[in-house]
């Protein structure tokens, strides 16, 4: 009995050790970015490299906040990602609901279509999407950028929410139907409240995808009217010179918020994913 407990203890300690190692590996690049962002330019390329700056400086951050377009880009990204995730949530969950609940002709084809659009490489879409938006005057607008990001977000939300809706027993809805609810009311007032964490998770997923996207933003944004954060990182490099301290400070500024957002809702996020993950 005692020997078994010892064995179990040792096993637990080993597992914890592995987990700690994995977490360290996960945080390695983040640590390096933070460390570099606090170094003065003379320490940035020190060889051999070290983690703790000999002279901690916050001047890189001052540059980022006062002398760059990062604050504006940050606001742009926030608006674009929000707009995109809201649009994706509304359109995608409606479609996902229909896929989960109704039998209709062309269902197989349409789900294949939604799936396929998820698989299109963005480098392929880049130029034709630009032509399209240019002709209707959407280039370099926040709405145009958010709409383009629907390419990634919408199929994703559709697929994920389809799984969630399947997990809701039909009986609940049928009971509501008897009470005279229309299908739409049904969705809005019965099903959606049940799935709040799941839909929130999907929304966050869409938000992060939009926030991080680079290839499309590269051609569809031009000025401070719509430029997003991944592109604003280039502010600190020119033909002659890359200012690494500033670039890394900016990287911290654009990465931390989404990590914080995620950490604050991680419980709902995982619950949400879970409800779609296994068929009930």
């Amino acid at each position: 009995m005692n020997a078994q407990m010892v064995k179990r203890r040792i096993r637990l300690v080993l597992i914890y050790a592995v987990l700690v190692l994995l977490v360290l590996l996960t945080l390695l690049p983040l640590g390096w970015i933070v460390s570099t962002s606090l170094k003065p330019s003379t320490e940035v390329f020190a060889n051999p490299p070290y983690w703790i700056p000999k002279q901690i400086t916050f001047s890189n951050y001052t540059n980022v906040f006062t002398g760059s377009s990062i604050p504006i880009a940050f606001l742009n990204s926030l608006i674009i990602a929000l707009l995109c995730s809201v649009m994706a949530l509304v359109l995608g969950s409606m479609a996902g609901y229909a896929f989960a609940r109704f039998q209709f002709r062309g269902k197989g084809f349409l789900s294949l279509f939604m799936l396929l659009s998820q698989m299109l490489p963005l480098t392929v879409l880049m130029i034709p999407l630009y032509y399209m938006e240019n002709r209707v005057g959407l280039v370099d607008t926040k709405f145009g950028m958010a709409a383009a990001h629907l390419v990634i977000a919408l199929p994703l939300v559709t697929w994920m929410s389809k799984g969630y809706f399947k997990g809701i027993p039909r009986e609940i809805e049928e009971a509501a139907m008897v009470d005279g609810c229309s299908t739409f009311q049904n969705l809005m007032f019965i099903v959606v409240p049940l799935l709040r964490p799941a839909l929130a998770a999907t929304g966050i997923y869409a938000f992060i995808s939009s926030w991080n996207e680079y290839a499309l933003a590269n051609v569809l944004t031009r000025s401070e009217a719509s430029r997003t954060v991944p592109l604003a990182l280039n502010d600190f490099s020119t033909f002659f010179k890359v200012n690494w301290g500033d670039t890394m400070a900016a990287a911290v500024v654009i990465t931390l918020p989404i990590i914080v957002v995620f950490l604050s809702v991680q419980k709902q996020f995982v619950e949400g994913l879970a409800s779609g993950a296994v068929k009930g």
Partner: peptide, 21 residues
Amino acid sequence: LVITDWDTYKSRVTAAISDDN
């Protein structure tokens, strides 16, 4: 003015210059 940067100027100019208006 539209401000470009070294890493992305080629692909951005390419897209912009090849379409009407």
